[in-house]
Nucleic acid binder design. Structure first.
Length: 679
DNA sequence: GCAAGGTC
């Protein structure tokens, strides 16, 4: 019998190894001369389709294999006009360091009749698949090309995928091609023209500075930092006024001999107003009314929702908040934990677990821990809840979760922190929401409405294992009857002023990048590092205000309990939401201040007064939409590339024309430094 | 000496 030979290629070694394990059970491992990260796994497998019994070699690449570059005649910065880079040819070739991997594919392709592509099922994976296809076809033009569709590496899912080969989606391949081409052309053209035009001015004061780069991700990232800097700098405090009511009342329900009356604080539903006379008039109406009347007394169950399954963006934000590590560091540590097999793949946008993933079994593995084992045991013994499902699914990777238990003492200090966070987050996802009872009393006092709220936490549930979030009892309210009237113990008009905004913190910057589609889960941290490296921004420990804001996050609380404490979303300067203890847990948060150069670049481009601003995130957002259109077959790669090149050419011409404006901006900040940090 | 995206 002729046995079919099939060459399978994954995007990374961890996938080929895991899939080989599921399909082959027993497999032979072969080394590849010249690379240490990729292996060949050989085994026999009977496909449950027309392929039948087959001899399989399962290998991998390490991400992209090819690189694109301009031909050498365009490589000299001094005798190439950057303008020419908008239409210079681009050569795609096998990256020198990937040559052994490419040769390995060629060698096996010659002996196989089918190339089965197992790259990640996202757009970038589709493109990497096309690179693999090209290399295999160069060695064996008759090889048949198939593509596996899988979104996790659970056994049943993988076997299902293996038996149902599909085709590469060339629309996705082309969408990525257009992004690559535009990023290279615009990045190179603008980096060269900016560097060549401005470096003399800047080197005069900063001889260290090498290049002034432009990139479709790094520039908008810088834009966010500068934007917030300008808000801080231009801030003018504004006074506001409010009304506070207190009432001392015996708690009829829990009357004990030594019981002292409870002081209830009522907050004005209007929060505060910026018009003093208006508040004076309203306050006088309150005083004239003399009596306050209870219009609502409500006790109802409330809950604080357990967190969603962990994505990369969330891991990075929480790393800043709770683990005293910046996003680059967190990712490096998570990568190590993944390599060692303790946690799942750390680059994912997915916040929902597929049904195939047995979360309960994963909880079981954590029962050995002295610290969180008892909680995990409780889950196994009946408290387990299937995790909530978020709205994101990259269809390539599951949420980040622990895959095996490891004794903390065998890990480095930083690894311990990240591993513990991943585990606790996962166990929290599999626990029940925290449950409590919320009391709200509303009064009408001179036609103004005031509220008092109280919270009793009844069941901490997920909070038991997730100390990163706090939810604590607040003031206990005495019993009121609707219709009851009383004379407030104290009514006063208060005065305050808006406080200045803080510089942007790392979690806030990541949130903005995420919302605007700047970078991917794998690259956001790199873009932040890049603008530091380019000397566009500096980082420093955040001030108390920044840490406070960094600790607060919308979306983690059930609607019924939103605005507890009443501070959230009130004044223009107020950014409430974090508890005192959350504040203490965020010492490691970094904030970013643009350098004079960073401000000059952004301000210079703003002053070009041009509709297509390089410093704003819209261009990147639009490119994202255009890539989707290519994926949906509504636009072609060529069409999108041409349209964008025209736009960038217009910006480029404007840049050259108005170089004096850019130079003036640089001059203003650099030659006559005028730094006012507002702190 | 340029970008952003994979990956170790």
């Amino acid at each position: 019998m002729v046995v079919r030979r099939i060459l399978c290629v994954a995007e990374k070694n961890s996938i080929s190894k895991a899939v080989a394990g599921h399909l082959g059970g027993q497999y032979q491992t072969g080394n590849i001369r010249g690379t240490q990260y990729v292996k060949n796994y050989s085994f026999d497998y009977t496909f449950n389709n027309s392929w039948g019994p087959s001899s399989v070699v399962f290998t991998a690449v390490s991400g992209h294999i090819m690189q694109q570059e301009f031909p050498s005649r365009f490589k000299n910065w001094n005798n190439t006009d950057p303008w020419d880079l908008f239409e210079a040819p681009i050569e795609k070739s096998i990256d020198e360091k990937n040559q052994p991997i490419a040769n390995n594919i060629k060698q096996h392709a010659q002996r196989c009749s089918i190339l089965y592509i197992w790259t990640d099922c996202d757009r970038e994976g589709e493109n990497i698949g096309a690179e693999i296809r090209q290399i295999a076809l160069s060695a064996n033009p008759r090889i048949e090309i198939k593509r596996a569709h899988f979104s996790n590496i659970e056994r049943t899912h993988i076997i299902q995928a293996a038996n149902n080969p599909l085709l590469l989606d060339d629309n996705q391949v082309n969408a990525i091609e257009s992004r690559m081409e535009l990023d290279l052309r615009t990045g190179a053209a603008f980096t060269r023209v900016l560097t060549l035009s401005l470096q003399d001015m800047i080197k005069a004061v900063d001889p260290e500075l090498g290049i002034i780069s432009y990139g479709s991700c790094q520039f908008p990232t810088l834009g966010f930092v500068v934007n917030q800097y300008l808000r801080v700098k231009n801030f003018v405090p504004e006074p506001f006024w409010s009304i506070k009511i207190t009432h001392k009342k015996e708690d009829e329900k829990n009357k004990k001999p030594d019981q002292r009356p409870i002081t209830v604080n009522f907050n004005w539903v209007r929060g505060h107003l910026f018009d003093r006379m208006a508040v004076v008039l309203l306050f006088e109406r309150c005083l004239n009314a003399k009596f306050a009347k209870v219009i609502k007394m409500e006790r109802k169950p409330t809950s604080k929702w357990r967190p969603l399954p962990l994505t990369t963006v969330e891991l990075q934000k929480n790393g800043s908040r709770f683990l005293q590590m910046n996003s680059s560091r967190v990712m490096a540590v998570a990568e190590g934990l993944y390599q060692k097999g303790w946690i799942s793949y750390p680059r994912t946008e997915t916040d929902q677990f597929d049904r195939e993933i047995n979360c309960q079994a994963l909880c079981q593995k954590q029962t050995q821990s002295r610290e969180w084992g008892p909680h995990a045991q409780g889950l196994v013994n009946g408290n387990f809840r299937q995790p909530r499902r978020g709205t994101h699914n990259d269809k390539a990777h599951p949420p980040i979760h622990p895959v095996n238990y490891v004794e903390k003492s065998t890990l480095s200090h930083e690894e311990q922190k990240v591993y513990e966070f991943v585990v606790r987050r996962f166990l929290a996802c599999c626990s029940d929401d925290a449950k409590g009872e919320k009391t709200t009393v509303a009064i009408d006092y001179g036609a103004e409405i005031f509220n008092a709220t109280g919270l009793i936490v009844l069941h901490r549930n997920y909070l038991e294992v997730y100390p990163y979030e706090k939810w604590e009892d607040s003031q206990q309210l005495p019993e009121y009857q609707v219709g009851e009237t009383f004379i407030p113990t104290e009514a006063k008009m208060t005065e305050g002023k808006t406080s200045p905004p803080h510089y942007i913190t790392e979690p806030e910057l990541i949130t903005l990048m995420d919302k605007n589609g700047i970078g991917t889960d794998a690259t956001m941290a790199e873009h932040i590092s890049k603008i530091k490296e380019r000397n566009y921004v500096e980082s420093r420990p955040a001030t108390a205000a920044g840490r406070l804001a960094a600790a607060s996050d919308e979306g983690d609380t059930a609607p019924a309990t939103r605005g507890r404490g009443g501070a959230r979303g009130r004044g223009r300067g107020g950014r409430g939401g974090a508890t005192a203890s959350a504040r203490g847990a965020t010492r490691g948060v970094e904030e970013f201040v643009p350098t004079t150069l960073g401000i000059a670049l952004i301000e210079g481009y703003e002053n070009l007064n041009f509709s297509t601003s390089l410093s704003k995130p819209f261009l990147r957002k639009e490119m994202e939409l255009q890539m989707k259109a290519i994926c949906d077959g509504q636009r072609t790669r060529n069409d999108v590339v041409q349209e964008n090149i025209e736009r960038y050419r217009a910006v480029y011409m404007r840049t050259k024309d108005q170089m004096s404006v850019l130079k003036a901006a640089v001059n203003k900040y650099i030659v006559e430094p005028e730094r006012s940090n507002g702190s």
